[in-house]
């Protein structure tokens, strides 16, 4: 399908070889930036940001919980988007991106759930509360697990890529519906419960480190994605001549 309005690099990305090279160049930069940001954000959030007047120091879990939750959601979107691109333009790299994102996103959902649960203990007094956000995050994890299970159940790589793309798109349509319905269900059963992260405007001393952490997490897990993607490219392109050349030179 010839599409004129898309930039050239978009189609260059379709070439596994080009993608392998460009990620190889990007990885060191991402490593430096992401580790700097995450270390900075962690120290800032843990030691320098002021304690919350209600929750005290347990509030500092926010600097881990919120970035993990945001990334788990945006990685699902990325997975569905990459799957759609793979379906429409038959782009192999997009398929590989979608496959590589899934386990990372699932691990982030697990992190968001665990930190949410641990945070709940000092705040609500129990390890698990059927709070709207935690429940939708749990459902998001289920969606991730479904995608991963389907992908590993189908042997042919192209079929698996296409099938998971359809599933993740269906999931993407459903996420807002699930979110809305869970929130609605929650207000029905737990009126006026104490929300973990809904605060009346955080002061800058609190949200600036949070922003640093969010950006740091994006770059850090972008890095993790590139590492996985490169393995995937090598494995699927093992018969291509450039991979053979690369391997024989490296030896």
């Amino acid at each position: 399908m010839a599409v004129k309005w898309l930039p050239r690099w978009f189609f260059q990305l379709a070439s596994p070889r080009w993608c392998y090279q460009i990620t190889g160049m990007l990885i060191p930069w991402f490593a430096v930036v992401s580790i700097t940001l995450v270390v900075l954000g962690t120290i800032w959030g843990l030691a320098f940001a002021p304690a919350d007047y209600q929750q005290g120091n347990s509030f500092r879990i926010i600097y881990l919980h919120v970035p993990a939750a945001i990334l788990a959601q945006s990685f699902y979107m990325l997975m569905a988007l990459a799957g759609a691109i793979g379906l429409i333009w038959k782009m192999k790299v997009a398929d590989m991106v979608a496959k590589s994102v899934a386990p990372i996103g699932a691990s982030l959902a697990v992190l968001a759930l665990l930190t949410g649960a641990i945070w709940g203990k000092p705040t609500w007094g129990s390890w698990w509360v059927w709070d709207a956000r935690l429940t939708s995050m749990l459902v998001l994890l289920f969606l991730y697990l479904g995608v991963i299970a389907l992908n590993s159940a189908i042997e042919s790589e192209t079929t698996a890529g296409q099938a998971t793309a359809v599933l993740s798109l269906v999931g993407l349509v459903n996420i807002p519906i699930i979110k809305y319905s869970v929130e609605w269900w929650n207000t029905l059963h737990q009126p006026a419960s104490f929300k973990l992260t809904e605060k009346p405007a955080m002061p800058p001393e609190m949200w600036v480190p949070l922003l640093v952490m969010v950006i740091g997490f994006y770059t850090l897990f972008g890095l993790a994605l590139m590492l996985r993607l490169r393995n995937e490219i090598l494995q699927r392109e093992r018969r291509a001549s450039w991979v053979r050349d690369l391997l024989s030179v490296k030896a």
């Binding site: 459902v139 289920f142 969606l143 697990l145 479904g146 299970a149 389907l150 159940a153 189908i154 079929t159 099938a163 359809v166 599933l167 269906v170 999931g171 459903n174 519906i177 699930i178 809305y180 319905s181 869970v182 609605w184 269900w185």
Partner: peptide, 26 residues
């Protein structure tokens, strides 16, 4: 999605059950 798979039974519930949640709630 699972029609071509030999052991689709458990898989289909994994794929579909999370999507059933809104209907269940309402």
């Amino acid at each position: 999605l699972t029609v071509g798979l030999r052991r689709g039974g458990v898989l289909i519930s994994l794929l579909v059950l999370p999507l059933y949640i809104p209907v269940l709630i309402f």
